[in-house]
Design a protein around this nucleic acid. Structure first.
Lengths: 154, 154
DNA sequence: TTGATTGCAAAATGTTTGCATAATG
DNA sequence: CATTATGCAAACATTTTGCAATCAA
């Protein structure tokens, strides 16, 4: 059995236990979410539609809300006003980080947490109980740095 | 001369040097931004309007874009789909961090950077040149933790 | 004086909602 | 069979744009 299938089974169980119904649309959306990273609702809608035509955008939004509520996915907002969604990795306690290239717009990911000490300090200094975090670095990706270097050299 | 006035003079100079005109609307918006933190465009619009009636929301958006472009303010996006804006502190190289309470919605700020070592590691591992970052912690603020504790005690 | 800026209204974008129909458990 | 979920269209909220009038330099 593929890893994706195992995950789908687990998630379906979670949905079922929470008292919701298992519909083909929910499974389709979940599959797309598992196969991709930081997709927008529109992108998910188009992908599901291309594989299995006949889904509504409203269903995508409603499903994304449901999956967020069940903590199966995370909603992330960059500065462009579009929400994106990532499946929550169960092996990971926290949301990973993002590298947003200001030049080409590419979004990369940083898997390593690296914030454990920072969080400890924040919790202590501010009496704030941290549940999760969102961290995005803005800058230049490897490719764009290299292209800029090439141009400088002539 | 007040600190705010000094800052306004500096920013006006920056706008002027960039070839833009100094209008009363721009100054009004700037003043509101300096007196407040993480306001939305709508909130800025209402504040300016209440002091000096006769500004358009479109002007607010256009000015916010201009000020962002000149690196005078930062646009931040939480998960609610509304963009907020903060004046860039010149003494600080990087955007500060936010503490978003999941219970009451309050947004606090963490002034200390604390990410210097993390950034060094990211730059090295990913060949990514970091220009800025956005970090928000999601959790429970002091007040909400205390209220939850009180309820548990009876 | 002239080109940038404004305010208004209209349009565009992303998301949510109401409701009749369809599907799940 | 009773709900829950869906798809569509309409509503909504935020942001952007076109354009004539206004203002700063």
């Amino acid at each position: 059995m593929e890893k994706t299938d195992t995950t789908i089974q687990k998630v379906k169980q979670k949905i079922y236990k929470a008292g919701y119904k298992l519909t083909s649309q929910r499974e389709d959306i979940l599959r797309v979410l598992l196969d991709n990273e930081h997709l927008s609702a529109e992108e998910i809608y188009l992908k599901v539609k291309s594989e299995n035509s006949g889904i509504g955008l409203a269903t995508v939004y409603r499903t994304l809300e449901l999956l967020s509520e069940l903590n199966i996915i995370n909603k992330i907002a960059f500065q462009d006003g579009i929400s994106r969604y990532d499946v929550n990795d169960n092996d990971r306690q926290h949301q990973h980080h993002y590298l947003l290239c200001l030049n080409c717009g590419k979004i990369d990911e940083v898997e390593k947490d690296m914030l454990i000490d920072v969080e400890k300090e924040v919790e202590k200094s501010y009496h704030f109980k941290i549940k999760d975090h969102r961290l995005t670095f803005h800058g230049l990706c490897k490719k764009c740095i290299e292209e800029a270097d090439d141009q400088n050299k002539g």
